[in-house]
Amino acid sequence: MPRTLKTEAEEFRQMAQPQNRTPLRNFLVAFAVGGLICFGGQVIQEIIMVFGPDKDTASMIVAIVLIVLGGIFTGLGWYDELGQFAGAGAAVPITGFANAVVSAAMEFRQEGLVLGTGARMYSVAGPVLTFGVVTAFLIGLIRALI
């Protein structure tokens, strides 16, 4: 028979609680980096509007630009470093969505274009799409009813 330990499992779980959590640092860095990405988007929008497009068109172009940049930074291997540093600050802006799709597309390329990249590129970003569509449907329903 194995030796039974005197320590209780509950006691051990208390002992094993990580001591080096840094929530305050994480909040501040996420706020700063996420804010900077959005600020960058705003700057791009203002510049585009100088050349004529109205606000709606300009914000659409901003989304495209940020998604492309997020994809490129992912491909260069920079975005995961940013994510490790900034957490939600890197994940929440639209660049984070691009990162989720592009990183999966790259990862599963080894299993082929169709069943690898094609099938699995939304394996990380999938929930965002699913719940985005569900939310849009619900909001649309509410609008149609009132």
């Binding site: 990580p18 995961d80 990162n99």
Partner: peptide, 16 residues
């Protein structure tokens, strides 16, 4: 890739 997420995905890992 089997146990976690794609390598280039920017999630934040704890120091432990």
């Amino acid at each position: 890739r089997q146990y976690r997420t794609p390598i280039e995905y920017g999630d934040q890992y704890p120091p432990w």
